[in-house]
Design a protein around this nucleic acid. Structure first.
Lengths: 144, 144
DNA sequence: CGGGATATGTTATGACATTACGCTATCGAT
DNA sequence: ATCGATAGCGTAATGTCATAACATATCCCG
């Protein structure tokens, strides 16, 4: 049963735990996606020692919309927009540069709408959508 | 070696190698995505012994558009449409049922167009697109 | 107090994927 | 006909990503 034992409108655990804070900060400081083990390596000095500590923190961060998992990379990025989980923008899409590793997050309402429409037509109970583009970013194209 | 074929000299290797054939057949016979190791297990009797044999076959099958990799599952399915790689339908999208594991492949030209448009606007050199929907299929919703 | 929910730390293990090496077959050009 | 390029095959070892299982601590609330 998911019920909030806080105020009755938003369950927004503003206060992250120490591990969650550490992981989020690490993601924020990175300029490319990090794997859980990348994160772990960067947090050894802070006392983290096992993958699970990182995975557990990531799970919560993703749950709260503060980070995203990139499925095609098995890695994580922090959300581009601090209010991402406000869900004003629909499903997030990610453009991943194969060359420099940078990730650009965006949202296209029309895409979201079309996928939702497909789900509606077919009776599919849509819970989560992954959209990932692979290619070379504008910068790297020029540099080619 | 059991295969002899008519000579053809175009780089359209429609004739698959033995391993590729085995892997494709396995995928075709499955009613849900299979991991490389799942496939390997089903092909031990045929003499396959190492993951790499499967991965190499999968690589080619995906390359030729006969199979797809589901990134969010780390698993593979055969292409729904035998002519999928004809690419008349644009980028494929997949609806994956969390309950029964079935996968439904579809394509939405408008979605493809919107993503291509975003790439065009931003100068992103789009090479490959992953679209995966998670949820419960119509059948499983009813059964719930 | 006591019980539920949540977070924590650690060990061990499971699941997915690739590197490295060497061998074989085919095919086209010299 | 042989050479070399290309592609496939087989095996071992290793690397990378992710979770199970168990034990403990904390906070809130009834």
């Amino acid at each position: 049963m998911a019920h909030s034992h806080e105020a009755h409108h938003h369950e927004r655990p503003r206060d992250l735990t120490r591990n969650q804070e550490l992981v989020l900060t690490t993601l924020n400081n990175a300029d490319a996606p990090l794997s859980a083990y990348d994160i772990l390596d960067r947090l050894r000095e802070e006392g983290l020692r096992a993958p699970l500590q990182v995975y557990r923190a990531l799970e919560k961060l993703v749950e709260h919309g503060l980070a995203h998992r990139l499925e095609s990379l098995n890695a994580f990025v922090c959300c581009a927009d601090a209010n991402c989980h406000g869900r004003t923008s629909g499903t997030a899409a990610f453009a991943i540069c194969s060359s420099c590793g940078r990730v650009d997050e965006f949202a296209d309402p029309e895409v979201t709408a079309r996928l939702a429409a497909w789900a509606g037509e077919t009776g599919f109970g849509l819970e989560r959508t992954t959209i990932e583009l692979r290619g070379r970013c504008a910068e790297c194209q020029k540099a080619a």
